[in-house]
Write a protein that binds this DNA or RNA. Structure first.
Lengths: 253, 253
DNA sequence: GATAATGTGTCTTATATAAGACCTATGATT
DNA sequence: AATCATAGGTCTTATATAAGACACATTATC
Protein backbone atom coordinates (compact mmCIF):
# COMPACT_ATOMS: atom_id res chain seq x y z
CA UNK A 1 0.00 0.00 0.00
CA UNK A 2 2.81 2.38 0.74
CA UNK A 3 5.45 0.25 -0.97
CA UNK A 4 5.57 2.44 -4.06
CA UNK A 5 7.52 5.49 -3.07
CA UNK A 6 6.62 8.84 -4.55
CA UNK A 7 8.09 10.33 -1.38
CA UNK A 8 10.57 8.86 1.05
CA UNK A 9 8.45 10.19 3.86
CA UNK A 10 4.98 8.70 3.73
CA UNK A 11 3.59 11.31 6.09
CA UNK A 12 0.72 12.66 4.09
CA UNK A 13 -0.58 15.02 6.75
CA UNK A 14 2.35 17.40 7.03
CA UNK A 15 4.43 17.87 3.88
CA UNK A 16 5.82 21.18 5.17
CA UNK A 17 7.94 19.61 7.89
CA UNK A 18 11.06 19.14 5.81
CA UNK A 19 12.30 22.76 5.65
CA UNK A 20 12.31 23.21 9.43
CA UNK A 21 13.86 20.91 11.96
CA UNK A 22 12.89 17.74 10.13
CA UNK A 23 12.38 15.30 12.92
CA UNK A 24 12.63 11.63 12.10
CA UNK A 25 9.40 9.83 11.43
CA UNK A 26 9.32 7.81 14.62
CA UNK A 27 9.70 11.00 16.60
CA UNK A 28 6.82 12.66 14.83
CA UNK A 29 4.76 9.60 15.69
CA UNK A 30 5.90 9.84 19.29
CA UNK A 31 4.91 13.50 19.49
CA UNK A 32 1.53 12.66 18.03
CA UNK A 33 1.05 10.07 20.77
CA UNK A 34 2.07 12.54 23.46
CA UNK A 35 -0.43 15.01 22.07
CA UNK A 36 -3.19 12.43 22.30
CA UNK A 37 -2.33 11.85 25.93
CA UNK A 38 -2.11 15.57 26.67
CA UNK A 39 -5.47 16.19 25.01
CA UNK A 40 -7.13 13.55 27.15
CA UNK A 41 -7.88 11.37 24.14
CA UNK A 42 -5.74 8.69 25.75
CA UNK A 43 -6.32 9.06 29.50
CA UNK A 44 -4.11 7.40 32.12
CA UNK A 45 -4.68 3.66 32.27
CA UNK A 46 -5.98 3.59 28.71
CA UNK A 47 -5.14 0.49 26.72
CA UNK A 48 -3.84 1.71 23.39
CA UNK A 49 -4.64 -0.02 20.14
CA UNK A 50 -2.17 -2.65 19.03
CA UNK A 51 0.98 -1.59 17.25
CA UNK A 52 -0.26 -2.83 13.91
CA UNK A 53 -3.58 -1.02 14.24
CA UNK A 54 -1.80 2.21 15.13
CA UNK A 55 0.58 1.70 12.23
CA UNK A 56 -2.27 1.24 9.79
CA UNK A 57 -4.14 4.21 11.18
CA UNK A 58 -1.22 6.62 10.88
CA UNK A 59 0.18 5.13 7.71
CA UNK A 60 3.62 4.08 8.91
CA UNK A 61 5.10 0.69 9.54
CA UNK A 62 4.63 -1.25 12.74
CA UNK A 63 8.36 -0.99 13.51
CA UNK A 64 8.16 2.80 13.50
CA UNK A 65 5.24 2.74 15.92
CA UNK A 66 7.28 0.37 18.07
CA UNK A 67 10.25 2.71 18.14
CA UNK A 68 8.02 5.59 19.20
CA UNK A 69 6.41 3.47 21.93
CA UNK A 70 9.85 2.26 23.05
CA UNK A 71 10.91 5.83 23.76
CA UNK A 72 7.66 6.60 25.54
CA UNK A 73 8.16 3.51 27.69
CA UNK A 74 11.72 4.59 28.47
CA UNK A 75 10.31 7.91 29.69
CA UNK A 76 7.69 6.15 31.81
CA UNK A 77 4.83 7.67 29.84
CA UNK A 78 3.47 4.30 28.76
CA UNK A 79 3.80 0.83 30.26
CA UNK A 80 4.17 -2.23 28.05
CA UNK A 81 3.03 -5.64 29.11
CA UNK A 82 3.77 -8.62 26.99
CA UNK A 83 0.63 -10.43 25.98
CA UNK A 84 -1.65 -7.70 27.28
CA UNK A 85 -0.85 -4.50 25.51
CA UNK A 86 0.49 -1.00 26.00
CA UNK A 87 -1.13 1.26 28.61
CA UNK A 88 -0.88 4.96 29.32
CA UNK A 89 1.06 5.32 32.57
CA UNK A 90 -0.86 6.07 35.72
CA UNK A 91 0.26 8.03 38.74
CA UNK A 92 -0.26 5.27 41.23
CA UNK A 93 1.57 5.42 44.52
CA UNK A 94 4.25 2.98 43.53
CA UNK A 95 5.18 4.83 40.39
CA UNK A 96 5.36 8.17 42.21
CA UNK A 97 7.45 6.56 44.90
CA UNK A 98 10.04 5.31 42.45
CA UNK A 99 9.95 8.13 39.98
CA UNK A 100 9.37 11.32 41.92
CA UNK A 101 10.00 10.71 45.59
CA UNK A 102 13.71 10.60 46.27
CA UNK A 103 13.79 10.95 50.04
CA UNK A 104 14.30 7.61 51.76
CA UNK A 105 15.13 6.66 55.29
CA UNK A 106 18.70 5.52 55.83
CA UNK A 107 17.59 1.89 56.05
CA UNK A 108 17.02 2.16 52.30
CA UNK A 109 13.42 0.91 52.27
CA UNK A 110 11.23 3.38 50.40
CA UNK A 111 7.97 4.36 52.06
CA UNK A 112 5.21 6.68 50.93
CA UNK A 113 4.63 9.65 53.23
CA UNK A 114 1.38 10.72 54.84
CA UNK A 115 0.44 14.36 54.51
CA UNK A 116 -1.32 16.90 56.69
CA UNK A 117 -2.39 20.23 55.25
CA UNK A 118 -1.54 23.25 57.38
CA UNK A 119 -2.97 26.02 55.23
CA UNK A 120 -4.38 26.67 51.78
CA UNK A 121 -5.11 29.94 50.02
CA UNK A 122 -5.40 31.59 46.63
CA UNK A 123 -3.40 34.76 46.11
CA UNK A 124 -1.50 36.80 43.59
CA UNK A 125 1.70 35.09 42.48
CA UNK A 126 4.93 36.31 43.97
CA UNK A 127 7.88 37.14 41.78
CA UNK A 128 9.52 33.81 42.59
CA UNK A 129 6.35 31.93 41.69
CA UNK A 130 6.03 33.81 38.41
CA UNK A 131 9.59 32.90 37.53
CA UNK A 132 9.29 29.27 38.58
CA UNK A 133 5.94 28.65 36.94
CA UNK A 134 6.54 30.86 33.91
CA UNK A 135 3.31 32.83 34.37
CA UNK A 136 2.39 36.49 33.97
CA UNK A 137 2.86 38.91 36.89
CA UNK A 138 -0.45 39.38 38.62
CA UNK A 139 -1.72 35.90 37.82
CA UNK A 140 -3.31 34.04 40.71
CA UNK A 141 -1.90 30.91 42.31
CA UNK A 142 -3.15 28.43 44.88
CA UNK A 143 -0.76 27.89 47.77
CA UNK A 144 -0.82 24.77 49.91
CA UNK A 145 1.37 24.32 52.93
CA UNK A 146 1.63 20.86 54.44
CA UNK A 147 3.70 18.53 56.58
CA UNK A 148 4.63 15.05 55.47
CA UNK A 149 5.26 12.15 57.81
CA UNK A 150 7.17 8.93 57.34
CA UNK A 151 6.46 6.26 59.93
CA UNK A 152 4.64 8.90 61.90
CA UNK A 153 7.65 11.22 62.13
CA UNK A 154 7.37 14.67 60.55
CA UNK A 155 10.18 14.76 57.99
CA UNK A 156 9.09 17.34 55.42
CA UNK A 157 7.38 20.70 55.49
CA UNK A 158 6.59 22.12 52.08
CA UNK A 159 4.76 24.82 50.21
CA UNK A 160 3.19 24.15 46.83
CA UNK A 161 2.24 26.82 44.32
CA UNK A 162 -0.23 25.97 41.57
CA UNK A 163 -1.48 28.29 38.81
CA UNK A 164 -5.13 29.00 39.48
CA UNK A 165 -5.80 28.99 35.75
CA UNK A 166 -4.79 25.34 35.55
CA UNK A 167 -6.14 24.09 38.88
CA UNK A 168 -9.22 26.23 39.63
CA UNK A 169 -10.76 25.62 43.02
CA UNK A 170 -8.18 23.12 44.15
CA UNK A 171 -8.00 24.62 47.65
CA UNK A 172 -11.74 24.35 48.20
CA UNK A 173 -12.13 20.64 48.70
CA UNK A 174 -9.98 18.26 50.66
CA UNK A 175 -6.44 18.22 49.27
CA UNK A 176 -5.55 14.53 49.01
CA UNK A 177 -2.32 12.84 49.93
CA UNK A 178 -1.43 11.73 46.45
CA UNK A 179 -1.43 14.99 44.56
CA UNK A 180 -0.24 13.85 41.13
CA UNK A 181 -3.03 11.32 40.89
CA UNK A 182 -5.46 14.09 41.85
CA UNK A 183 -4.13 16.49 39.19
CA UNK A 184 -4.72 13.72 36.71
CA UNK A 185 -8.17 12.58 37.76
CA UNK A 186 -9.73 15.96 38.50
CA UNK A 187 -7.94 18.28 36.08
CA UNK A 188 -6.64 15.94 33.38
CA UNK A 189 -3.09 17.17 33.98
CA UNK A 190 -0.37 14.52 33.84
CA UNK A 191 3.00 15.29 35.40
CA UNK A 192 5.66 14.01 33.03
CA UNK A 193 8.94 15.61 34.11
CA UNK A 194 10.37 17.46 37.07
CA UNK A 195 13.48 19.49 37.78
CA UNK A 196 14.84 19.91 41.26
CA UNK A 197 17.41 22.19 42.85
CA UNK A 198 18.84 21.17 46.21
CA UNK A 199 20.43 23.34 48.87
CA UNK A 200 21.42 22.89 52.49
CA UNK A 201 19.79 25.44 54.74
CA UNK A 202 19.04 25.92 58.42
CA UNK A 203 15.50 25.82 59.71
CA UNK A 204 13.63 28.97 60.67
CA UNK A 205 12.01 28.90 64.13
CA UNK A 206 8.59 28.30 62.56
CA UNK A 207 9.65 25.43 60.34
CA UNK A 208 11.77 23.96 63.11
CA UNK A 209 8.78 23.94 65.43
CA UNK A 210 6.68 22.09 62.89
CA UNK A 211 9.36 19.45 62.41
CA UNK A 212 10.16 19.15 66.09
CA UNK A 213 13.76 20.33 65.88
CA UNK A 214 15.57 23.32 67.32
CA UNK A 215 15.79 26.45 65.22
CA UNK A 216 18.99 26.53 63.21
CA UNK A 217 18.89 22.79 62.63
CA UNK A 218 20.15 21.87 59.12
CA UNK A 219 17.69 20.69 56.48
CA UNK A 220 17.65 19.88 52.81
CA UNK A 221 15.75 22.40 50.72
CA UNK A 222 14.34 20.85 47.54
CA UNK A 223 12.81 23.22 45.00
CA UNK A 224 10.87 21.41 42.34
CA UNK A 225 9.25 22.53 39.12
CA UNK A 226 6.95 19.89 37.69
CA UNK A 227 6.07 19.91 34.01
CA UNK A 228 2.99 18.51 32.32
CA UNK A 229 2.98 16.38 29.19
CA UNK A 230 2.92 19.44 26.95
CA UNK A 231 5.92 20.95 28.73
CA UNK A 232 4.05 23.60 30.72
CA UNK A 233 5.28 24.20 34.27
CA UNK A 234 2.23 23.44 36.41
CA UNK A 235 3.56 23.04 39.94
CA UNK A 236 6.24 24.70 42.00
CA UNK A 237 7.07 23.33 45.43
CA UNK A 238 9.72 24.04 48.01
CA UNK A 239 10.26 21.22 50.47
CA UNK A 240 12.34 21.34 53.62
CA UNK A 241 13.49 17.84 54.52
CA UNK A 242 15.09 16.56 57.68
CA UNK A 243 18.03 14.36 56.77
CA UNK A 244 19.15 13.24 60.21
CA UNK A 245 17.68 9.81 59.62
CA UNK A 246 17.01 9.99 55.88
CA UNK A 247 18.70 11.01 52.67
CA UNK A 248 17.97 12.11 49.13
CA UNK A 249 18.90 9.33 46.76
CA UNK A 250 20.22 10.04 43.26
CA UNK A 251 21.92 7.90 40.70
CA UNK A 252 23.54 8.61 37.38
CA UNK A 253 23.78 5.88 34.86
CA UNK B 1 24.49 -20.64 9.90
CA UNK B 2 22.20 -20.40 12.86
CA UNK B 3 19.04 -20.75 10.86
CA UNK B 4 18.52 -24.36 11.83
CA UNK B 5 17.37 -24.28 15.39
CA UNK B 6 18.30 -27.11 17.71
CA UNK B 7 18.01 -24.46 20.44
CA UNK B 8 16.18 -21.19 20.43
CA UNK B 9 19.34 -19.60 21.89
CA UNK B 10 22.20 -19.64 19.39
CA UNK B 11 24.79 -18.73 22.00
CA UNK B 12 27.37 -21.48 21.53
CA UNK B 13 29.68 -20.28 24.29
CA UNK B 14 27.36 -20.75 27.23
CA UNK B 15 24.83 -23.55 26.84
CA UNK B 16 24.06 -23.46 30.54
CA UNK B 17 22.37 -20.09 30.36
CA UNK B 18 18.93 -21.34 29.44
CA UNK B 19 17.89 -22.83 32.79
CA UNK B 20 18.68 -19.61 34.65
CA UNK B 21 17.63 -16.11 33.65
CA UNK B 22 17.71 -16.64 29.88
CA UNK B 23 18.63 -13.20 28.64
CA UNK B 24 17.55 -12.19 25.14
CA UNK B 25 20.13 -12.38 22.42
CA UNK B 26 20.66 -8.66 22.05
CA UNK B 27 21.41 -8.40 25.75
CA UNK B 28 24.00 -11.15 25.57
CA UNK B 29 25.59 -9.23 22.72
CA UNK B 30 25.50 -6.06 24.81
CA UNK B 31 27.17 -7.82 27.73
CA UNK B 32 29.85 -9.15 25.40
CA UNK B 33 30.54 -5.60 24.23
CA UNK B 34 30.74 -4.32 27.81
CA UNK B 35 33.22 -7.08 28.56
CA UNK B 36 35.39 -6.03 25.65
CA UNK B 37 35.43 -2.49 27.00
CA UNK B 38 36.12 -3.63 30.55
CA UNK B 39 38.96 -5.85 29.36
CA UNK B 40 40.62 -2.98 27.55
CA UNK B 41 40.13 -4.59 24.17
CA UNK B 42 38.02 -1.62 23.21
CA UNK B 43 39.62 1.35 24.98
CA UNK B 44 37.92 4.75 25.35
CA UNK B 45 37.79 6.63 22.06
CA UNK B 46 38.06 3.40 20.08
CA UNK B 47 36.14 3.34 16.81
CA UNK B 48 34.25 0.08 16.79
CA UNK B 49 33.79 -1.97 13.66
CA UNK B 50 30.65 -1.30 11.69
CA UNK B 51 27.42 -2.89 12.78
CA UNK B 52 27.48 -5.36 9.91
CA UNK B 53 31.07 -6.43 10.62
CA UNK B 54 30.22 -7.00 14.28
CA UNK B 55 27.13 -8.92 13.27
CA UNK B 56 29.10 -11.20 10.98
CA UNK B 57 31.81 -11.71 13.56
CA UNK B 58 29.41 -12.73 16.33
CA UNK B 59 27.01 -14.55 14.10
CA UNK B 60 23.88 -12.50 14.73
CA UNK B 61 22.01 -10.09 12.55
CA UNK B 62 22.91 -6.44 12.19
CA UNK B 63 19.65 -5.39 13.81
CA UNK B 64 20.51 -7.28 16.95
CA UNK B 65 23.88 -5.56 17.12
CA UNK B 66 22.06 -2.28 16.66
CA UNK B 67 19.73 -2.94 19.57
CA UNK B 68 22.69 -3.74 21.80
CA UNK B 69 24.51 -0.58 20.71
CA UNK B 70 21.33 1.46 21.19
CA UNK B 71 21.20 0.48 24.83
CA UNK B 72 24.89 1.18 25.30
CA UNK B 73 24.42 4.60 23.75
CA UNK B 74 21.47 5.27 26.06
CA UNK B 75 23.76 4.51 29.01
CA UNK B 76 26.46 6.81 27.65
CA UNK B 77 28.93 3.95 27.23
CA UNK B 78 29.28 4.48 23.49
CA UNK B 79 28.72 7.53 21.31
CA UNK B 80 27.21 7.21 17.87
CA UNK B 81 27.99 9.70 15.15
CA UNK B 82 26.10 9.46 11.94
CA UNK B 83 28.37 9.02 8.96
CA UNK B 84 31.44 8.45 11.15
CA UNK B 85 30.78 5.45 13.31
CA UNK B 86 30.31 4.32 16.89
CA UNK B 87 32.99 5.17 19.47
CA UNK B 88 33.65 4.01 23.01
CA UNK B 89 32.79 6.92 25.31
CA UNK B 90 35.61 8.95 26.78
CA UNK B 91 35.74 10.73 30.11
CA UNK B 92 36.46 14.12 28.71
CA UNK B 93 35.68 17.15 30.83
CA UNK B 94 32.47 17.95 29.08
CA UNK B 95 31.01 14.50 29.56
CA UNK B 96 31.94 14.45 33.24
CA UNK B 97 30.45 17.89 33.68
CA UNK B 98 27.11 16.83 32.26
CA UNK B 99 26.98 13.30 33.56
CA UNK B 100 28.61 13.29 36.98
CA UNK B 101 28.95 16.83 38.24
CA UNK B 102 25.64 18.09 39.51
CA UNK B 103 26.69 21.13 41.52
CA UNK B 104 26.14 24.33 39.59
CA UNK B 105 26.17 27.95 40.59
CA UNK B 106 22.79 29.56 40.87
CA UNK B 107 23.28 31.39 37.58
CA UNK B 108 22.80 27.98 35.98
CA UNK B 109 25.97 27.98 33.88
CA UNK B 110 27.92 24.76 34.51
CA UNK B 111 31.64 25.15 35.14
CA UNK B 112 34.30 22.58 35.83
CA UNK B 113 35.98 22.99 39.22
CA UNK B 114 39.68 23.33 39.94
CA UNK B 115 41.11 21.07 42.61
CA UNK B 116 43.80 21.37 45.24
CA UNK B 117 44.98 18.30 47.13
CA UNK B 118 45.29 18.75 50.88
CA UNK B 119 46.50 15.30 51.89
CA UNK B 120 46.99 11.82 50.48
CA UNK B 121 47.75 8.56 52.27
CA UNK B 122 47.36 4.80 52.08
CA UNK B 123 45.86 3.11 55.12
CA UNK B 124 43.69 0.26 56.25
CA UNK B 125 40.08 0.67 55.22
CA UNK B 126 37.64 1.87 57.84
CA UNK B 127 34.39 0.04 58.43
CA UNK B 128 32.50 2.66 56.43
CA UNK B 129 34.91 2.34 53.54
CA UNK B 130 34.62 -1.45 53.57
CA UNK B 131 30.86 -1.16 53.41
CA UNK B 132 30.82 1.52 50.72
CA UNK B 133 33.42 -0.12 48.50
CA UNK B 134 32.40 -3.71 49.21
CA UNK B 135 35.91 -4.83 50.17
CA UNK B 136 37.29 -7.17 52.83
CA UNK B 137 38.06 -5.82 56.29
CA UNK B 138 41.76 -5.10 56.53
CA UNK B 139 42.15 -4.24 52.84
CA UNK B 140 44.14 -1.11 52.11
CA UNK B 141 42.72 2.04 50.57
CA UNK B 142 44.18 5.26 49.26
CA UNK B 143 42.65 8.39 50.76
CA UNK B 144 42.77 11.74 49.05
CA UNK B 145 41.47 14.90 50.61
CA UNK B 146 41.06 17.94 48.45
CA UNK B 147 39.31 21.27 47.99
CA UNK B 148 37.53 22.22 44.81
CA UNK B 149 37.09 25.75 43.56
CA UNK B 150 34.62 27.26 41.15
CA UNK B 151 35.57 30.70 39.83
CA UNK B 152 38.32 30.76 42.46
CA UNK B 153 35.91 30.30 45.39
CA UNK B 154 36.30 27.18 47.53
CA UNK B 155 32.95 25.40 47.27
CA UNK B 156 33.70 21.75 48.02
CA UNK B 157 35.90 19.85 50.42
CA UNK B 158 35.91 16.12 49.87
CA UNK B 159 37.59 12.88 50.83
CA UNK B 160 38.03 10.09 48.29
CA UNK B 161 38.66 6.46 49.17
CA UNK B 162 40.09 4.15 46.51
CA UNK B 163 40.90 0.45 46.89
CA UNK B 164 44.67 0.07 46.76
CA UNK B 165 44.27 -3.21 44.91
CA UNK B 166 42.63 -1.39 42.01
CA UNK B 167 44.61 1.85 42.05
CA UNK B 168 48.10 0.93 43.31
CA UNK B 169 50.39 3.89 43.86
CA UNK B 170 47.83 6.51 42.98
CA UNK B 171 48.87 8.76 45.85
CA UNK B 172 52.52 8.77 44.81
CA UNK B 173 52.40 10.99 41.75
CA UNK B 174 50.50 14.19 41.22
CA UNK B 175 46.75 13.58 41.58
CA UNK B 176 45.21 15.34 38.59
CA UNK B 177 42.12 17.50 38.49
CA UNK B 178 40.13 15.22 36.23
CA UNK B 179 40.17 11.98 38.16
CA UNK B 180 37.89 9.83 36.03
CA UNK B 181 40.02 10.43 32.95
CA UNK B 182 43.05 9.48 35.04
CA UNK B 183 41.47 6.24 36.27
CA UNK B 184 40.87 5.41 32.65
CA UNK B 185 44.25 6.31 31.17
CA UNK B 186 46.52 5.03 33.92
CA UNK B 187 44.53 2.10 35.34
CA UNK B 188 42.17 1.17 32.53
CA UNK B 189 39.19 1.64 34.83
CA UNK B 190 36.12 3.26 33.31
CA UNK B 191 33.51 4.74 35.61
CA UNK B 192 30.12 3.77 34.26
CA UNK B 193 27.58 4.43 37.03
CA UNK B 194 27.37 6.28 40.31
CA UNK B 195 24.97 6.38 43.24
CA UNK B 196 24.73 9.37 45.53
CA UNK B 197 23.13 10.01 48.90
CA UNK B 198 22.55 13.61 49.95
CA UNK B 199 22.15 15.05 53.41
CA UNK B 200 22.15 18.51 54.91
CA UNK B 201 24.76 18.89 57.64
CA UNK B 202 26.57 21.64 59.46
CA UNK B 203 30.28 22.22 58.95
CA UNK B 204 32.84 21.15 61.52
CA UNK B 205 35.32 23.84 62.52
CA UNK B 206 38.02 22.25 60.35
CA UNK B 207 35.90 21.98 57.22
CA UNK B 208 34.45 25.42 57.83
CA UNK B 209 37.93 26.92 57.99
CA UNK B 210 38.87 25.33 54.68
CA UNK B 211 35.76 26.68 52.99
CA UNK B 212 35.99 30.08 54.62
CA UNK B 213 32.74 29.92 56.54
CA UNK B 214 31.93 29.95 60.23
CA UNK B 215 31.67 26.63 62.02
CA UNK B 216 28.09 25.39 62.08
CA UNK B 217 27.37 26.77 58.62
CA UNK B 218 25.05 24.46 56.64
CA UNK B 219 26.45 22.39 53.78
CA UNK B 220 25.31 19.66 51.44
CA UNK B 221 26.94 16.32 52.10
CA UNK B 222 27.12 14.16 48.98
CA UNK B 223 28.25 10.55 49.44
CA UNK B 224 29.04 8.89 46.14
CA UNK B 225 29.85 5.31 45.22
CA UNK B 226 31.19 5.04 41.67
CA UNK B 227 31.01 1.75 39.79
CA UNK B 228 33.23 0.50 37.00
CA UNK B 229 32.01 -1.13 33.80
CA UNK B 230 31.98 -4.56 35.40
CA UNK B 231 29.88 -3.30 38.30
CA UNK B 232 32.65 -3.21 40.92
CA UNK B 233 32.55 -0.29 43.35
CA UNK B 234 35.88 1.43 42.78
CA UNK B 235 35.54 4.86 44.38
CA UNK B 236 33.85 6.22 47.47
CA UNK B 237 33.81 9.94 48.06
CA UNK B 238 32.16 12.19 50.58
CA UNK B 239 31.87 15.79 49.43
CA UNK B 240 30.79 18.74 51.52
CA UNK B 241 29.39 21.44 49.29
CA UNK B 242 28.54 25.05 50.06
CA UNK B 243 25.14 25.85 48.64
CA UNK B 244 24.85 29.52 49.51
CA UNK B 245 25.52 30.49 45.93
CA UNK B 246 25.14 27.11 44.23
CA UNK B 247 22.80 24.15 44.13
CA UNK B 248 22.69 20.46 43.29
CA UNK B 249 20.67 19.97 40.13
CA UNK B 250 18.56 16.88 39.56
CA UNK B 251 15.88 16.03 37.08
CA UNK B 252 13.54 13.15 36.69
CA UNK B 253 12.17 12.34 33.34
C1' DG C 1 39.66 24.73 -4.73
C1' DA C 2 35.18 22.97 -6.16
C1' DT C 3 32.77 18.87 -7.35
C1' DA C 4 31.68 14.12 -7.78
C1' DA C 5 32.16 9.38 -6.26
C1' DT C 6 32.30 6.26 -2.57
C1' DG C 7 32.05 4.12 1.70
C1' DT C 8 29.96 3.85 6.19
C1' DG C 9 26.38 4.21 9.49
C1' DT C 10 21.81 5.22 10.56
C1' DC C 11 16.71 5.34 9.56
C1' DT C 12 12.72 3.16 7.98
C1' DT C 13 10.14 -0.59 6.50
C1' DA C 14 9.08 -5.47 6.21
C1' DT C 15 8.57 -10.19 7.80
C1' DA C 16 8.81 -14.23 10.71
C1' DT C 17 8.96 -16.58 15.10
C1' DA C 18 8.45 -16.84 20.12
C1' DA C 19 6.25 -16.08 24.46
C1' DG C 20 2.76 -14.34 27.62
C1' DA C 21 -2.25 -13.33 28.56
C1' DC C 22 -6.94 -14.11 27.90
C1' DC C 23 -11.15 -16.42 26.39
C1' DT C 24 -13.82 -20.39 25.55
C1' DA C 25 -15.19 -24.93 24.61
C1' DT C 26 -14.69 -29.38 26.22
C1' DG C 27 -14.79 -32.95 29.38
C1' DA C 28 -14.42 -34.91 33.90
C1' DT C 29 -15.82 -34.70 38.47
C1' DT C 30 -18.82 -33.70 42.24
C1' DA D 1 -27.09 -30.12 36.77
C1' DA D 2 -23.31 -27.33 38.50
C1' DT D 3 -18.42 -26.73 39.04
C1' DC D 4 -13.79 -27.07 37.98
C1' DA D 5 -9.56 -27.98 35.31
C1' DT D 6 -7.53 -28.28 31.08
C1' DA D 7 -6.48 -27.70 26.16
C1' DG D 8 -6.81 -24.85 22.16
C1' DG D 9 -7.20 -20.80 19.76
C1' DT D 10 -6.44 -15.98 19.37
C1' DC D 11 -4.53 -11.60 20.43
C1' DT D 12 -0.64 -8.83 21.80
C1' DT D 13 4.03 -7.67 22.54
C1' DA D 14 9.01 -9.28 22.28
C1' DT D 15 12.74 -10.81 19.60
C1' DA D 16 15.34 -11.66 15.42
C1' DT D 17 16.61 -10.99 10.68
C1' DA D 18 16.91 -8.55 6.33
C1' DA D 19 16.91 -4.95 2.83
C1' DG D 20 16.42 -0.42 0.71
C1' DA D 21 16.72 4.71 1.46
C1' DC D 22 19.02 8.46 3.34
C1' DA D 23 22.79 11.35 5.71
C1' DC D 24 27.35 12.32 6.50
C1' DA D 25 32.35 12.15 5.96
C1' DT D 26 36.15 11.06 3.37
C1' DT D 27 38.54 10.48 -0.81
C1' DA D 28 39.32 10.99 -5.57
C1' DT D 29 38.90 13.73 -9.57
C1' DC D 30 38.67 17.63 -12.50
Amino acid sequence: MISDKPESCPDATNPAVAPVGFRPLYRQVKDAFIKRMADGLWPPGFLLPSESVLAGEIGVSQGTVRKALDELAAENLVVRQQGKGTFVAQHDEKRILFQFFKLVRDDGIPRFPESQVLAAEVAEASAAECAGLDIEPGARVARVRRVRFIDGDPLIVETLSLPDAIFPGITEGEVPNSLYAYYSSRYGVTIAFAREKLKAIVLSPEDAAILGRPAGHPALQVSRVALALDGRAVEWRVSLCLTDDAHYSASMR
